[in-house]
Amino acid sequence: MGIFNLSNLPFPALLSQLLLGLVNGSFYAILSLGLAVIFGLLNVINFAHGALFMIGAVLTWMGLNYFNISYWAMLVLAPVIAGLFGMLTERLLLRWIYKLDHLYGLLLTLGITLLIEGVFRSAYGVSGLPYDTPDALQGATDLGFMILPNYRAWVVVASLSICFTTWFVIEKTRLGAYLRAGTENPRLVEAFGVNVPLMITLTYGFGVALAAFAGVLAAPVIQVSPLMGQNLIIVVFAIVVIGGMGSIMGAILTGLGLGVIEGLTKVVYPEASSTVVFVVMVIVLLIRPTGLFGKEK
């Protein structure tokens, strides 16, 4: 009975799964960061995050196939387009439910998810749309213990850069101070002369743009499909719960950490790799109901 005996594992396999876990963790980090930013200021559990992730990927595919727009241009354009769509959604729909229970936000964004996914499913069906890795990131690098595809290395670098830039802006700048203060007491921040409703719209737009950015990164890795966000979003919700709702650094670190744990589980006990995140969630909630980085309100 040696399934949990780590000493029997080949070291290169362990390292390579660690690295692949980090790639998945990068997606988790960027998505859970967006959810944490949105929840912090809007108090809305954005169920539509998976669909917005999908929009990023589908826009990337559409950009190339309909308008011949490169991956690199879509890396900027798709988040901008999705962000504008998000701002419109906030102004027209979400704004009405801020004073209500979280459940209403969850239901509304679930409805938005079904709508978005339905539209794309009727246009493109459910089978995946292939998207080639951009030329500059083709190929792989031999790290000695594993061959790492260049594109996956790029995913980690790009995600971490975006995540830590976002963390820096929120935690260390004046703009971030408005956001943090707005999360605590929006009415008082408004009484100081800050246009909080506009800040909320921009924040939602930014959170959506993050999801779409992750979607662009995912396009060459995961098959682009109208339902691609569904599988991911449940895991990402579990990660946000583990990290603690509203914690920026918590969302990033938990995302990366859970990606790695998932990767390691694939080596140790592959059958549990898809459920390990939820097992961790149960354990964390039993010990720390507010999550690893969350604070009691």
């Binding site: 203060a181 605590e184 007491n185 008082l188 009484a191 800050v194």
Partner: peptide, 24 residues
């Protein structure tokens, strides 16, 4: 006027509960 524009008319407000932000 909305609240944020009222403050811009040169009105400073110190609330009863002080309103010091814990995350700042």
């Amino acid at each position: 006027l909305p609240t944020h524009r009222i403050a811009r008319h040169g009105i400073g407000y110190c609330p009863e509960e002080r309103g010091i932000f814990a995350s700042l």
